[in-house]
Every structure is written in C-alpha cells, then in structure tokens.
Computed example of a mutant assay.
Amino acid sequence: MRKCPLCLSANNVAIVERARVPVLQNVIVRTRAEALEFPTGRLSICGCQRCGFVWNDDFDPAAIDYGATYNNSVQASGVYLAHQAAMVDRVLKEKGDLHYLEIGCGEGEFIDALEKTGRLKTAIGFDPAFHGNYAFGPHITIFREYFDADSAVKVPDTINTVCSRHTIEHVPDPRAFVAEIAKFVKERKVRLLMETPDVTWILRRAAFEDFFYEHCSLYSPRSIQYLLAEFGLKCTVDLVYDGQYMWIEASPADNPPLPVAVTDFADGVAAGLAQALENWRAEIDRLRERGPLAIWGAASKGVTFALLLEGIDYAIDLNVQKQGGFLPVSAVPVVGPEAARHAGVSTIVVMNPIYETEIRSKVEEMGWNALVISLRAEAPGTSF
C-alpha cells in the first residue's frame, strides 16, 4: 500500500479488495458477448487514518477511456432534476451576471440548466467525454479535453465562477488536480464550487455497491477541506442529495488552517462491508423465490450490485440509450420499465434509496404488481 495520495501519510488501512471489476460502469454495451469480455481492473480500496481520504491503490489511468459509449445521464429522473435545480440555485445565489467555467462538464446538462435561467452570459466547459448533444449558442464553448495549465489560457478573463461537479472522484492524483484549479482560482480571484460523493455516507451504511473503479478517489468533508487548504483555499461543506453528496464552496485565503486529524475508520469497517454483502446475497436468494428479480438503476451502483450478487435477471433504467444493452462484465440485460413488467418481474430492488418514492409511483401508475424494496440505510440483518 502506497502513501496517501492526498496528505502523503503512511498510516493507512485496507477497506475493500476485489480482483475483477469493470473499469467503467457508465457505458452503453450493446451485446452480451461484449459485456462478458469488458475490460476489468483490480479494486484495492484504502483509507488514510490521518486525513480520511479513500482511494483505489490499484487504479490505472491508462485503463480508462471516456469514449463514445460513455453515458452517465440521469436526466430522465424528476428527483435528480430537482436536485440539479437546487444546485443551479446555489450557483446563482450571488447577484449579477454569471460568467462560468465548468471542469468536467459531461454532456453539458448543468450548463444547459444554467442557460435556461437567463442569468448565464458566457460559459466554458472542459470534458473529454463530451459528445455534443446540446445545440449551444456562440456564448457557450465546450472543449473535448481535460482542464490543465495549457487549457486554462482558453478561458476568458470575464469568468467569475469555477465549478466542478462529480469529477474529482475520477482523478487519481488529487494534489495535481487541485493545484491547477487553485492556481487558476487565486490568480483570477474567483469562487470555486464543487460537488462530489461523501465517502462517510458510504461507510456508515456499509454500501458495498458504492465502491467501483471509476471512483478512484473518495472524500469526506474533512479530507476535502484538508486538500483545498493545502493549496490556499478555505471552504464550507454542505451535505446535499439526501446526504450522499457534498456541496463545497471555496475561495482564496491566506494560510487557511488544516483540519485536525481524526481517525475516520473503525476497526470493523471492512468486516461490516463484507457482512452487508453476505446479507444481501441471502436476501436475493429469498426474493427470487417470488419470480424474476430486477434492480432499478443501470448506473454504477447497479453495475456493482449485479457483479457481486448472482440472481439478477434484469436492470431497469429510464435512460433509453442504455435500454437494450447489457451491464458490463455481469451481462445483465438493461430494459425499460414496460419490458421488465412484460417479462414478469415480480421484485424490484432500487439501487439508490433517494429514488424509491419516484419508482414506487411509476410502478403503481403502470398497474404493475411488483414488490419494490431499496438498498436501505442498513442491509437486512446488519448491525454495522
């Protein structure tokens, strides 16, 4: 185990080991054969006892290709759109025109949401996975590349807000990534906004399905504060999205204090994750006695859940681009709700509990007599 990539401490602990996981989860895989042969990597999740950072010690950046098949859109969910709208409001809480830079903008969904408010005057986005699905006007430019010192020269002086949502967790070298952004933020004297998963939420719930290859770097509120402070940024952290994500607002500061080091990882964290997985294996075996079983959610949580547990017949997803395909490695078919109902699915396991109410309403609206349960705060029989 190497030193912590964030604070460089050698006081680390092993959390999760998996020998063969797909290197990408949010992809469109069109054939079962392609799914079974999908590229894999090793997961060695470690945690730093000094700063609370969590990372995959066996992550290989060369294995990642955010190419034409990458698709992590959740724009079909009303619950997610409500969250997105709430984050748009946070970006716009300061008065005046918005001149915006987004690092890791994906397909530009968030930029499009900002545009619809009428407050966005100019925007620049950087993301190698951008496919050009939006017809943006001339005041919005998206570059299909990573943001670094060379690309920073493409950003006009008018920019007053820098944002990076759900990007830093994909970056294996957090110090280099934040160093580039902090340099830009301090030179331009602008604010920095970030959103990323809270690893504390994952650990407290023994959420074994939330560790996967793409997310090679996971943060707690303390570790993200530590990282930003190292590079001259003070920040506040709010929990959003039912506590699953952190919303971070940062600005330049002279010698911001580093958070006090406190151990984040109890002795039983690895055992608790393993026990939660075993409990769900028993639960799936029991539920399959009712008939065909589907998970709802063909994104990262669903890909991981289907990989670790046998007996998943279908993965349901509202993203029509994923329907008709297969989950990588497990080769579980991805279908829409109607197709799952037609196939006789009698049990639905909701991958993200935040969507449970929305999914129950959809199932009832369809007249579908299926049992709907979710990955609750604790797996059945778990005391962790």
Rank of each mutant, 00 (worst) to 15 (best):
D112C: 11
D112N: 14
A113C: 03
A113P: 03
L114C: 13
L114M: 03
E115D: 14
E115K: 15
E115F: 14
K116D: 06
T117E: 07
G118E: 09
G118P: 08
G118F: 07
R119D: 01
R119H: 13
L120F: 04
A123K: 01
A123E: 05
I124M: 13
I124N: 00
F126C: 06
F126I: 03
D127T: 06
D127N: 10
P128L: 02
P128N: 09
A129Q: 07
A129C: 06
A129R: 09
F130R: 04
F130T: 09
G132T: 08
G132W: 12
G132K: 09
N133W: 10
N133T: 12
Y134R: 11
Y134H: 15
A135R: 15
A135S: 14
F136W: 06
F136E: 05
F136V: 08
F136K: 08
G137V: 09
P138L: 05
P138M: 04
P138C: 02
I140V: 14
I140G: 00
T141H: 12
T141Y: 01
T141P: 05
F143W: 11
F143I: 00
F143G: 03
R144I: 00
R144M: 08
E145R: 15
Y146E: 08
F147Y: 11
A149Q: 13
D150L: 10
D150K: 12
S151W: 02
A152G: 05
A152T: 05
A152R: 02
V153S: 14
K154M: 13
V155F: 04
V155A: 09
P156C: 12
P156L: 12
D157E: 13
D157W: 01
D157R: 13
D157H: 11
T158K: 10
I159Q: 00
T161F: 02
V162Q: 10
V162R: 05
V162L: 13
V162W: 09
C163A: 15
S164H: 05
R165D: 02
R165P: 03
R165I: 11
R165E: 00
H166K: 06
H166N: 14
H166A: 14
H166I: 08
T167S: 14
T167I: 02
T167Y: 03
T167H: 14
I168Y: 07
E169L: 09
E169W: 11
V171C: 12
V171T: 13
P172Y: 10
P172I: 07
D173R: 15
P174I: 01
R175Q: 12
R175Y: 00
